[in-house]
Design a protein around this nucleic acid. Structure first.
Length: 710
DNA sequence: TGGGGATTT
């Protein structure tokens, strides 16, 4: 291993003790931390030693030094950008400072997070620091789970929840402070919030410049002003500041141990083999400490897992043992939990992870990181004028990912990061990945904005989405009858937006209500919109799995097949224990995670129907025709016609020639036309989640929709 | 005839 041997100093930002404004050193005005007055710290009895220890810990956090300065800054400005490094304590402390100082009035302080786990665990921590029970003064709100009550003043929530709340309360009037955390991750929902907050600020705080406003001017809503704090961990802070009329940026140093970084002298095309060699080099030469290895996907993880076990079994007896733990999102929760168990004595734990370990989970005890420099990325490939398709590709990571990965070695002490790429390769990496708004479908966002009376093409974003992407979104909404030909939202469009679904699936549900099969379509759509796939193959058991699942097969295709599987699961779930249910799923080769999530989504969709006085109970019984017809309405842009060759299909509204995925229930049938859930590109463009439709459905599509085809 | 990075309402 050739070492370029540099201390980690990738983050070239100002590193100032405590806080500084716009990079200026802060010595003059930083004040000693004091317990603030203002709002009460909750219903704590005070005096418990645990609480005293938590409060002592709070005072030791890097951000505590700048507490008063930060409060003054927020008091005097509508918007503050806070650039805080890992371990600064910004996410837990800033909301408490705002509460304790009373600067944000009587409303709720919202703190948004891109991930559910972050929202729930942060809320638990802050509730403990306040000496209160979760759901009292401090609570959280994520999909399917809200722990908050009338006394809740600090609410951790997913960014998606706040975006959803915009639809019922466009000015977010319940909130007197909105803290957007992890803004550098640039999720679509964070970007939407940042954009909307700009107009919300103008409406609630007045039209003047956003910076340095000491007192709220008399405005329509001057009685209910809002404070906005954008928190970021990278230098993108400048961009946020510019967006909000050059508002001030505060910097707070983090608390991170140094990580020594090594690069290879040459590129490593066989990164799995290079990883194996590096790991055993660490194991033989380096002191105890656990190892975290970043790999692109499950396949590499499993192959490396086997190799490590093979080599580890041949280690001399006087060497420490090696315990390998795979870690990726699709892994069953029980196996995921293994990485948090304490390592047995005289053993080195070695975690093989995807980028789930980059931000989503923090594993304690990591001293060494091996970074292959690769990850998997879904790319939307445009194909002429037709609808595009997705491909999952292994690609180089970005500089910011590389830094984040290295940082995982320095959480508890001095660490080491072995990069399996050259320093030149690091320098050639992109700084950070493209914001999600420039990579993902905008159909749903465009519809939600339409509901708020705004046009996505006119809005001020941190980064503008591609015009092509906007046009495609609006075209899709028109095909679904969510907007009319003048681009105005329709009643149907408003109803679609009320569902927590992609507009195409929401459209299918509304159509199913008309066709008397809402029960079935809601069930199917619930599975389709789950995070994971229902039929999830284990590589060496594909044939057995296919055979076992044959009993769910429906001749019309995968949608009815999914319904059959869900129904069977429901029958088992009605009578059997949790353990028996799990065992049944395993035997049927069904992903229980998907089924559990689908049932929750189904209940939420039924509740949404009830709120809108839409009946969800209508059933087509055993007739699948109204079901596929309803799905066709939503998936109209995903329809394709059989070609004369009798095996391939051509998109009706695009130019791609596609095949039915071999795993489909109708892969071996000859059908005249199909609808599909998605296209995946491997050796061919394959349609997945396919059902047969009569050609007559296509003929029935009205002519004015046809005229819209590019 | 074949391959599931990570999020979220």
């Amino acid at each position: 291993m050739d070492a370029s041997d540099e201390e980690q100093d990738d983050r070239k930002g100002p590193k100032v003790n405590g806080l500084a404004v716009n990079g200026a050193h802060a010595n003059g005005w930083i004040q000693k931390s004091k317990r603030g007055g203002g709002a009460s710290s909750g219903s704590s009895v005070g005096g418990s030693s645990k609480l005293r220890e938590l409060q002592a810990q709070r005072r030791r956090l890097p951000i505590a030094q700048g507490r008063e300065a930060l409060i003054e800054q927020i008091r005097n400005n509508d918007v503050t950008v806070l650039l805080g490094e890992t371990g600064s304590g910004k996410t837990t402390q800033v909301p408490q400072y705002i509460l304790e100082s009373g600067i944000a009035g009587p409303g709720i302080i919202a703190v948004t997070q891109p991930r559910r786990v972050a929202a729930t665990s942060l809320a638990a921590r802050v509730a403990a620091e306040q000496g209160t029970t979760l759901g009292g003064l401090v609570g959280y709100s994520v999909r399917f789970d809200e722990v908050a009550g009338p006394d809740t003043r600090i609410k951790y929530m997913t960014d998606g929840m706040l975006v959803r709340e915009l639809l019922s309360d466009p000015l977010l009037t319940r909130y007197s402070a909105i803290i957007v955390d992890e803004a550098h991750e640039r999720t679509l929902r964070t970007d939407l919030l940042i954009t909307k907050l700009k107009t919300i600020l103008k409406k609630r705080n007045g039209d003047g410049p956003l910076k340095n406003k000491d007192k709220g001017k008399a405005t329509a809503m001057s009685g209910n002003p809002v404070k906005v704090i954008i928190m970021s961990a990278t230098l993108d802070a400048e961009k946020f500041s510019k967006f909000y009329d050059d508002c001030k940026i505060l910097y707070v140093k983090g608390r991170q141990h140094p990580v020594k970084i090594y690069h290879t002298a040459e590129g490593q095309p066989d990164y799995v083999d290079a990883t194996l060699r590096t790991l055993f080099q660490i194991h033989v030469d380096q002191p105890p400490g656990d190892v975290l290895i970043f790999l692109p996907g499950q396949e590499d993880i499993e192959s490396l897992h086997k190799s490590i076990q093979l080599y580890a079994s041949r280690l001399p007896l006087d060497k420490m043992a090696v315990l390998t733990c795979p870690m990726f999102a699709a892994l069953p929760p029980a196996q995921q939990a293994k990485i948090f168990q304490t390592t047995p004595p005289n053993t080195r734990k070695c975690i093989l992870a995807t980028n789930i370990a980059e931000t989503s989970i923090t594993i304690p005890g990591i001293k060494y990181v091996i970074d292959t420099g690769k990850h998997k990325e879904k790319r939307h490939l445009a194909h002429d004028t037709g609808s595009g398709f997705d491909a999952l590709l292994t690609r180089d990571i970005t500089k910011s990912s590389a830094m984040q990965r290295a940082g995982r070695a320095g959480r508890e002490g001095k660490g080491f990061c072995f990069r399996l790429y050259t320093e030149e390769a690091f320098e050639a990496m992109a700084v950070s990945s493209e914001p999600e708004i420039r990579r993902t479908s905008l159909t749903s966002a465009a519809l939600q904005l339409k509901c708020l009376g705004e046009d996505i093409e006119d809005l001020d974003f941190l980064d503008r989405p591609d015009l092509e992407s906007i046009i495609s979104a609006l075209k899709t909404l028109y095909f679904l009858n969510a907007v009319d030909k003048s681009n105005r939202i329709t009643d149907a469009g408003r109803s679609m937006a009320a569902f927590p679904l992609e507009p195409n699936l929401a459209c299918a549900v509304l159509e199913a209500v008309k066709n008397g099969c809402a029960l079935e379509v809601i069930d199917i759509v619930s599975v389709l919109s789950s995070t994971s796939k229902l039929f999830f193959d284990i590589s060496d058991e594909r044939e057995v799995a296919a055979e076992v699942r044959r009993k769910f097969r429906h001749r019309s295709g995968d949608h009815m097949t999914i319904l059959n599987a869900l129904r069977s699961y429901q029958d088992v779930a009605a009578t059997e224990s949790k353990a028996a249910r799990k065992e049944w799923c395993r035997k049927q080769y069904l992903n229980e995670r998907t089924l559990l999530e689908a049932v929750k989504i189904r209940d939420q969709l039924r509740a949404t129907c009830e709120k809108m006085s839409i009946g969800w109970q209508s059933s087509a019984q055993d007739d699948e025709r109204p079901v596929t017809k309803s799905l066709f309405r939503g998936l109209v842009l995903h329809s394709a016609l059989l070609q004369p060759d009798g095996t391939t299909f051509k998109q009706v509204y695009g130019r791609s020639v596609i095949k039915i995925h071999p795993g489909s229930a109708i892969a071996d049938q000859k059908v005249p036309a199909i609808i599909y859930d998605e296209l995946v590109y491997t050796n061919h463009i394959y349609a997945r989640g396919v059902s047969a439709i009569p050609k007559a459905f296509l003929a029935e599509i009205s002519t004015h929709i046809k005229s819209q085809i590019a």
